[in-house]
Design a protein around this nucleic acid. Structure first.
Length: 478
RNA sequence: GCCCCCGUCGUCUAGCCAGGCCUAGGACACCGGCCUUUCACGCCGGCGACACGGGUUCGAAUCCCGUCGGGGGCACCA
């Protein structure tokens, strides 16, 4: 049984890169009939916050990623929050002490920093020198009596090459001499990431560690710990990282990069799910629009592209448009749109919103576009744009409006069909058609030269508001 | 500096492992046209890439070597 995990640290919003990692883990678990475990890595007490954890969970759920075991659902390997697993870590730290895999190091951060700088300046790799590695019992005793703080370091075997097969990268070989003896326990007694991640993954019986490529160089250290503790090593799969426009690792510098931000920008979770899946992976055929079920069906970790990918905002936007106009039912789409109507200050009941959505769904790409596109359905007193003003100066523009007003003046209601008949009639009587006919009406009704279908607008806002708007223009110009 | 990963249209990618089916396929974006009495949607078409240099081979985007370029890592962060 495949068991994978997503293990974010609650130090901020859910970043797109992490979201994709979570998604690939989810997809792989579902594809193989395995389980997804959600673990919170909050060993960094400085930066971890419970609010962030809540946000993370919320964003994950919104995206449509469900986990089988984890912080809020529990499971047989609970607890799933690292800050609650300290007793467990103590036990395994003790094992490493007993087996002699770790030793006390009394070097101060200042000493280490100086050492690092010196190494860099001399062109040597900045690694720990191993100064405290062979301290005698007396020396240790003396330093302890002086009350000097110490950390525990892992005794890295000299010259050994760690080879592992990465499901995405292939065979990776790293010589342990590239890094020095690394810290396992901080001076405050808390264990460090590289150690706890191994203990947790092993105890939670994780079979496949699927994570970002930035963890690739940590892997040999972790493998060393797996071996020291006698744990079975999982399979590793390192996902290429996601880049910004400038080809550096995607970060806040590149604008909105959190799932939350896209959600607030009016992206649909289905489109995000689909779009994220396509970042570094794609199906055997040429399909681009795939449902969650199809993605689960098709996904395989082996098909993940191994080069880093620049995040394609334009394509995500297009995809979102596809979901808005084709994939969701009008009912569902309207439900999701309500907050955006409200935010824009457009008041109406559900049925009215629904009519508006039906009219504009073909021409918007995010729900935030509602503000612009739905304006004529809600705002009666609007400014007329400069280009629109030009339209009104055209020959026969006012005649069209006068004629239209005359036709609808006595009407109590109007349908699309009736409106079309009227425009037909005006066309015959005045000899104008196409833009010359529709543009003046559009401008009078919306103040803009482009927008929704006029007939639909007319039917939706009703004849009285049409009269009012046409009259306003006529009073001013005619 | 050292280690690791990567390099196909502007972008996401197919093809590479098992060399010929590739005058390199799809998608986004962009440009043009069609449909439409308006606006969109849609449809059709165009532009556009194997980083470079050596090999191996009858034949290389695909295999090998080198160069260049990009990225990641080298913490008492995760």
């Amino acid at each position: 049984m495949v068991r994978v995990r997503f293990a974010p640290s609650p130090t901020g919003y859910l970043h797109l890169g992490n979201a994709r990692t979570a998604l690939f883990n989810y997809l792989y678990a579902k594809h193989t009939g395995g389980k997804l475990i959600l673990r919170i890595e909050d060993t960094d007490k400085e930066r971890s916050k419970k609010e962030y954890e809540d946000m993370l969970l919320d964003d994950l759920k919104w995206l449509g990623i469900q986990w089988d075991e984890g912080v809020d659902v529990g499971g047989e390997h609970a607890p799933y929050r690292q800050s609650e697993r300290t007793e467990i870590y103590k036990e395994y730290i003790q094992k490493l002490k007993d087996s002699g895999h770790i030793y006390k190091c009394f070097c101060t951060p200042e000493e280490l920093e100086a050492e690092r700088k010196k190494a860099l300046a001399e062109g040597r790799p900045p690694r720990y020198s191993g100064k405290c590695r062979n301290l005698s019992q007396e020396e240790i005793k003396k330093l302890e009596e002086e009350g000097k703080p110490y950390v525990w370091r892992f005794r890295v075997p000299d010259g050994e090459s760690i080879v592992f097969e990465d499901l995405i990268k292939g065979v990776v070989e790293i010589n342990v001499n590239d890094f020095g003896d690394f810290v396992i326990v901080r001076s405050d007694g808390s264990p460090v990431y590289n150690f706890v991640v191994v203990v947790d993954d092993a105890l939670m019986e994780i079979t496949h560690v699927i994570r970002g490529e930035d963890h690739l160089s940590n892997t040999p250290k972790q493998i060393l710990i797996y071996r020291a503790l006698g744990f079975k090593e999982p399979q590793f799969a390192h996902l290429p990282i996601i880049l910004g426009e400038d080809k550096s690792k995607l970060s806040k510098r590149h604008g909105a990069v959190s799932v939350r931000a896209f959600r607030e920008e009016g992206y649909l979770s289905e489109a995000m799910f689909n779009g994220l899946a396509l970042l570094g992976w794609h199906p055997k055929d040429d399909r681009e629009v795939l449902s969650k079920e199809e993605l689960i069906q098709e996904f395989d970790i082996k098909d993940v592209h191994n080069a880093p990918a620049v995040f394609d905002r334009a394509k995500l936007k297009w995809l979102n448009g596809v979901y808005i106009r084709e994939k969701l039912s009008l009912e569902e789409l309207t439900k999701r749109a309500i907050p955006f109507f409200e935010e824009a200050g457009y008041k109406g009941d559900f049925e009215y919103y629904k009519k508006v959505m039906e009219a504009i769904r073909d021409s918007i790409e995010t729900l935030k576009d509602i503000k612009e596109r739905a304006k004529p359905f809600f705002v009666d007193k609007f400014e007329i744009s400069p280009e629109a003003e030009e339209v009104l100066k055209q020959e026969k523009a006012l005649d069209v409006l006068k004629q239209l007003y005359k036709e609808i003046e006595g009407m109590e209601s109007i349908t699309k069909e009736e409106f079309k008949k009227i425009t037909k009639k005006i066309q015959k009587e005045l000899g104008v058609k196409g833009k010359a006919l529709f543009m003046p009406i559009r401008v009078a009704l919306t103040g803009e030269t482009s927008g929704v279908d006029i007939a639909v607008l007319v039917e939706t806002i009703g004849v009285d508001r049409v009269k009012e708007r046409v009259k306003r223009v006529l009073d001013r110009l005619g």
